[in-house]
Design a protein around this nucleic acid. Structure first.
Lengths: 246, 246
DNA sequence: AAGTGGTCTAGACCACTCT
DNA sequence: GAGTGGTCTAGACCACTTG
């Protein structure tokens, strides 16, 4: 059966046709019509479906690819991206030894709490709303390296409240995708410098007052909503990061 | 007179025509055929000149625009980018007061020296080659905030050796473009945390051993060669930076 | 009004991947 | 060989900028 879009071709007045097509496709992707990892219909099919030329649908797909929502593979197809890979926090640090390794994760604490004003603002929910708070220590080869506080909005992540954390694995995002169906598509990390308090320094095996780095992350689902606030603390001496300007 | 390219259409075997066009155009830009700020010939002219369709030349131009070499303005033309603007170092910091301000620069020292192994490696020259070393303090509203060591390869920047630094202005890159004809197109900044030595802390008005940020910059000219190595040191407490992941 | 880049079409052929 | 995305053509018309 031929697909007939309810909003024929031009969604908004001042918008180009390929931009309208891109937002239409984005909505269908977010709605789960093509889950992460599955291929979209071929260009020719999409073009016929929407009644536009091949070049137009290609512009729309190029836009979505640029935004990281899809991935094009020559000869194979156009695939929905599976969200952010794990272990990305380590790209800010150089802890000695083999790179590319995934740090082991241990949940030190887990509580359902009411969102503070700051947490609510970052998660874009009302203060006092229930959130799941996790306190997590990550280690490389037995050596503690990252200490994390994680806040997750709670109606969404109810499945984690009673599940045993020992079975969660070392990466949060694949676990969120598997157990809660939430795919992390985008994140912003804010880097700052602080001196570590005793409570932060001790689990990391550092003395109180030691220079530390604080990375505040807001992670967004495919829908565009912020679904995770994470504050990571680590030894400032291990920090390094490279930025390229154009 | 019609331009007839010496390498007709296909520069390298496995390369697409638009990629070959892009590199050909890049070489003409780097060679100075169209100085920064001036417009390229119109799409239709370039297409006729190279004997290709409009869409092909547009792909080539899109590639160069993506790489930041040119800038397209609807209704006006395609312009060669003027290189990096100044004051970009401040995007790593939050010093109190009005943002967007350009810090005042003062040259504390200037010497012609032989490149150390490390400096030579970063500038991709031979160790012992002559370089110009600058020691610069930058201040906002009279408050010292950034301390910089800058190394510039010397045959290229001879014009700076005897010129009075008081007349250089507060921004390095516009000065390099004006006095030496070198346009900075790209730079990579490497960020790390260190404790400030006495020689670094004192000019910044900080105590020795104070936590500091070190930003190591390698800046590249339009030609692609590294033409500046800069190490900037500042108070770690003023540091902040935001990264977005896709 | 003339010139520019931006969008769109309706084809053709090529390169890659899988079976 | 069949299906996919990648490249390329030769047009048309639109939107923006300037004289």
């Amino acid at each position: 059966m031929r697909h007939t879009p309810s909003t024929p071709l031009q969604a908004e007045p001042g918008q180009s046709r390929y931009a309208a097509l891109a937002t239409a496709l984005r909505h269908r992707i977010v709605a789960g019509e093509w889950p992460p990892g599955t291929p979209l219909p071929a260009e020719t099919h999409l073009a016929a479906e929407h009644g536009v030329a091949l070049g137009t649908i290609r512009q729309a797909l190029a836009l979505l690819a640029e935004q990281g929502l899809i991935e094009r593979r020559h000869g194979k197809g156009t695939f929905v991206r599976g969200g952010l890979a794990g272990a990305t926090m380590l790209r800010f640090f150089r802890f000695g030894g083999d790179d590319g390794a995934v740090p082991q994760s241990r949940i030190l604490d887990r509580q359902c709490v009411a969102a503070s004003a700051e947490v609510a603002r970052r998660l874009d929910i009302a203060p006092g709303e229930p959130v799941l708070w996790l306190h997590r220590l990550r280690s490389l080869r037995g050596q503690p390296c990252l200490l994390e506080d994680i806040w997750l909005p709670l109606p969404l992540f109810d499945a984690l409240v009673d599940s045993p954390p020992e079975q969660w694995g070392d990466l949060l995002y694949p676990m969120l995708a598997e157990r809660c169906g939430v795919v992390i598509a985008r994140a912003t990390d804010d880097i700052g410098f602080t001196l570590l308090g005793a409570a932060q320094a001790h689990p990391l095996g550092l003395p109180p007052g030691h220079p530390g780095v604080t990375v505040t992350r807001q992670a967004y689902a495919l829908s565009g909503h912020c679904v995770e606030l994470r504050i990571t603390r680590a030894d400032a001496a291990a920090f390094h990061y490279t930025v390229t300007l154009h």
